[in-house]
């Protein structure tokens, strides 16, 4: 159903989105009526302290969770109205995920972890090409237990981009990494954004990473505090760690 949709400049359009966990006195308002548009093809960084709601928004946009009320549209399609099976289809065809703790399958080698996705995607790239993009083509037959954290994260990125995703979501992708490997990961994300044209959404609480984004969304207390469009962007290597 999502195929053949009209071309538009806006990837996501969010209006009055609220997310409430729990009920009554114990209710936690994770999102308090967020309004946000994310243009297609941009590199977007969501910044904010812990508990500000940025990960909640990412999860809803990624089709992992649903808002309590409000409107969420992906290229004019209402995510809130999709069934579980439709959301699965949406993730399968359009969304790539990169997690803080990599979430690789320990029983599959690097290439097999990528193949896990290419086997089910509609227009995937060659798994070796994806690993080449992250600079790990020489380690494709290694299991996760044989790789460093940075390498595991790059495999995770290769897995996420191998389907040529419309959107790439990254939740604290460098949170568990040191500066050198962290920069390498950011370079790959930047590369994907530029070469594949994927919209990239990075959630982080490291403010310095905002410098490399097209657009920076500041979060606080469950709402968007400020949206800054960078006229000039830094390269990953210029970022302070």
């Amino acid at each position: 159903m999502i195929q053949g949709m009209a071309m538009t400049e806006t990837a996501y359009s969010v209006q009055k989105l609220r997310k409430i966990y729990g009920e009554g006195e114990a209710a936690v308002h994770a999102l308090r009526g967020v309004d946000l548009d994310i243009p297609k093809g941009e590199f977007v960084v969501l910044l904010g302290p812990s508990g500000s709601g940025k990960s909640t928004l990412l999860n809803i946009l990624g089709g992992l969770d649903r808002g309590t009320d409000g409107d969420v549209r992906f290229m004019q399609h209402d995510l809130a109205a999709m069934s579980d099976a439709e959301l699965t289809r949406y993730r399968r065809d359009h969304v790539g995920f990169v997690f803080q703790f990599y979430n690789l399958m320990p029983s599959l080698t690097a290439r097999e972890n990528v193949e896990l996705v290419t086997e089910i995607a509609s227009d995937p790239m060659d798994p070796d090409e994806a690993l080449d993009l992250v600079g790990l083509d020489h380690r494709s037959d290694h299991f996760p237990a044989q790789m460093s954290g940075g390498e595991q994260q790059r495999v995770a990125i290769a897995r996420a981009i191998a389907k040529r995703p419309t959107v790439l979501f990254c939740d604290e992708p460098t949170g568990a990494l040191d500066s050198t490997t962290g920069r390498a990961v950011l370079r790959v994300l930047k590369d994907v954004n530029e070469r594949l044209g994927s919209t990239v959404l990075v959630v982080t609480h490291a403010a310095s990473q905002a410098a490399m984004a097209d657009r920076v969304v500041h979060f606080a207390d469950g709402d968007v505090r400020e949206v800054i469009v960078n006229e000039t962007k830094s390269t990953p290597d210029e970022i302070e760690w």
Partner: peptide, 26 residues
Amino acid sequence: AAPPDYSRSGRFGAAAARFMDQPTRM
């Protein structure tokens, strides 16, 4: 904990592997 290590036990013959998708390998 480090991820469980499959490197020593998880190798299949290439011939067998060709017929298996990733979930089957898992």
